[in-house]
Simulated assay, not measured.
Amino acid sequence: MQTLQPTFHSIEEERTYIKQRLAASFRLFSKFGFNDGSAGHITVRDPENKHHFWVNPYLKHFSHIKASDLMLIDEDGNILKGDYDINGAAFAIHSEIHKARPDVNAAAHSHSPYGMAFSTLGRTLDPITQDACAFYNDHSLFDDYTGVVYDTKEGKRIADALGGNKAVILRNHGLLTVGQTVDEATWWFVAMERACQIQMMAESTGHKPVLIEKSYAEKTYEQMGLSEVALHDFKPLYDRMVKEEPDLLD
């Protein structure tokens, strides 16, 4: 499979690339209806200091976010760059995930409608479609709810529930996905939201969906659940956003 990751000639070039992908991800979340009020956040590590990460400014609508608006914070919640406040829940959750998973460079969470609805069921996704198999044995359930996550101790519990997976369903809350790149974390969120939608649609017929056999679900996971696949699936969405809303690159 063709690699889509470019070669960078400087840290600043890589940082600009990462911030533009992150800004595009927020525009995509807005386009897909994943932006309600002040809820939702996506983070990505800075390429120079892996203990610092970029995040969206608090109270700025996803549809308005540009690369230049992004905030740089450290794992203690200190604002290093940016002119806005940050979402307390974004720090509490994402700082603990970045600490627990050095292999993860980006994490995405928002209150998407089907993700929130499915999370109330207190279960994980079934392998009922080819696309759902991207999460087969690679997502978990945080089977608890104690209120808005403002405490890093609660963030650590979420990170523990995520484990080594690419996603976790937060019961009565929504979805959270991670990846080696912001492209990957964003795509997994979009794909998982759709998988939740499809499963609920299928079950709403009153019939039990037919599960894909274990061996074939595992095989399909190896075809659909790879980081490289997420990069390829994110690319057309990124290209669409840049063409429609080029100001996000500023």
Rank of each mutant, 00 (worst) to 15 (best):
K81T: 09
F91M: 09
G82A: 13
I93H: 01
A107T: 07
A108H: 02
A107C: 10
P102D: 08
P102N: 11
G82E: 10
A108P: 08
A100Q: 04
I97P: 04
A100G: 06
A89Y: 05
L80G: 08
A100E: 03
H98Y: 02
A89V: 00
A100I: 08
G88I: 01
I79F: 15
L80R: 14
L80W: 10
D74W: 15
N78L: 15
I86M: 14
N87A: 11
A89G: 01
A92T: 04
K81H: 09
V104N: 02
I93A: 07
H94W: 03
A92L: 01
A90R: 13
D103C: 03
L72E: 05
F91G: 01
N87D: 08
D83W: 06
D85S: 13
H94M: 08
D85R: 15
D103A: 06
P102M: 10
A90K: 13
A92W: 01
G82T: 12
L80C: 10
N105E: 02
A108F: 00
F91Q: 10
L80Y: 07
P102H: 05
D74C: 14
K99T: 04
A106G: 08
H98K: 11
G88P: 01
D74V: 14
D83Q: 13
S95M: 00
I86Q: 12
H94N: 11
D103S: 06
F91D: 00
A89H: 06
A108K: 07
A89L: 01
F91H: 12
S95H: 07
G77V: 00
K81F: 02
A92D: 00
P102F: 04
A90F: 08
D103E: 10
D85N: 13
D83R: 14
I93Q: 07
D103R: 10
A108Q: 04
N105S: 01
D103L: 05
H94C: 08
Y84N: 12
I86F: 12
S95F: 00
L80V: 11
I73V: 15
V104Y: 08
A90M: 12
A92K: 04
N78R: 15
A107Q: 05
A90Q: 11
S95N: 05
